[in-house]
């Protein structure tokens, strides 16, 4: 496979994952804006921070009014993190690697782009927002379904999955990073348990409020939520789960090529560390420091993969 193609697949799936994650963040922010309008400005600011576009937003707009932020995150073509820009980037990469994709995956991606372009051609009124966000998630599910149902399980698939899980881990870690102060045990001590809406926001932004209840019933505590999002091996958006998948996909490539690269070792080390950690240790080390370190490691791993497999010269 061409190095460029591996890179195109990696980025195509990173962008697809990112557009879905951003749709979820908007969803969570929107809920708060509806139910707790007093807090909405703070919440939108943290959504912008999580999506990595606060600076871009501040450069162009003032204040964090719902409609402005939503439009910025969904439709602004000048904003490289808007859903429309991300989907364009995903689709451009898909065109670049079209020969590596099955017809189904290409068509699902192209159709997603066409659908979203039409849907986001004009500002989305509040009453239509839930529908629009649900379409974004559905389109994303469509591409994922086509990928799982039709792609050979070879290096093409592995590079695509690496993109997905590196992006997902990054996203979950960012959510934790922005909200870490809510999860500090000291807050829990002061006010017994977390404020209902705050933890709902966190869980909703990873589509896991149901899954959390399945596992923990009604027990809501900072350490349970942190453990769920960082260490739980069955939670498909937890850091440990993503790290496991990354190590596995890199292992597959290493086996297929019969050549060892540093990235595989780095990924294994990262996974081992998460597998053996406990939430108490993490709190002791400092949740914030832990997440910062994870984000840095994740970025370094992404760079290493791009070097090892010659995405570019």
């Amino acid at each position: 496979m061409l190095g460029k193609t591996a890179g195109g697949l990696f980025w195509m799936f990173r962008y697809l994952e990112r557009s879905e994650n951003n749709a979820r963040l908007i969803d969570a922010g929107f809920r708060i804006a509806l139910t707790r309008s007093a807090n909405s400005s703070t919440e939108w600011k943290s959504v912008l921070t999580t999506s990595g576009s606060l600076a871009d937003y501040d450069a162009r707009h003032s204040g964090y009014r719902s409609d402005k932020v939503i439009d910025f995150l969904l439709r602004e073509t000048d904003n490289p993190s808007s859903v429309i820009s991300i989907m364009k980037a995903a689709r451009d990469n898909a065109r670049l690697v079209r020969t590596a994709l099955t017809r189904e995956v290409w068509e699902a991606t192209n159709e997603s782009w066409i659908t979203l372009k039409e849907l986001l051609a004009s500002p989305v009124p509040d009453q239509d927002l839930p529908d629009v966000l649900s379409v974004i998630r559905k389109q994303s599910a469509l591409v994922r379904g086509a990928t799982h149902g039709t792609m050979l399980r070879n290096d093409v698939f592995d590079f695509a999955r690496l993109g997905t899980f590196l992006e997902r881990a990054d996203n979950t870690a960012r959510i934790l990073d922005v909200k870490y102060y809510l999860l500090l045990p000291s807050i829990a001590k002061i006010g017994s348990s977390l404020d209902n809406f705050q933890w709902e926001t966190i869980l909703r932004s990873v589509s896991a409020h149901r899954a959390y209840r399945w596992l923990n019933g009604s027990e809501v505590s900072s350490s349970k939520i942190s453990e769920f999002l960082i260490l739980h091996h069955q939670m498909p958006r937890s850091l440990a789960f993503c790290a496991g998948k990354i190590a596995q996909n890199l292992g597959n490539i290493q086996e297929e090529y019969a050549v060892e690269h540093p990235s595989c070792e780095v990924a294994n080390a990262l996974f081992e560390r998460l597998k053996n950690a406990t939430i108490d240790e993490i709190f002791e080390e400092g949740l914030h420091e832990f997440i910062e370190k994870f984000l840095a490691d994740n970025t370094a791993l992404s760079t290493q993969i791009q070097t090892d497999y010659r995405f570019s010269e």
Partner: peptide
């Protein structure tokens, strides 16, 4: 150009 041939950059060299 690599060793007198036109070569493409793949994930394996």
């Amino acid at each position: 150009v690599v060793d007198g041939r036109i070569a493409m950059r793949t994930t394996q060299g």
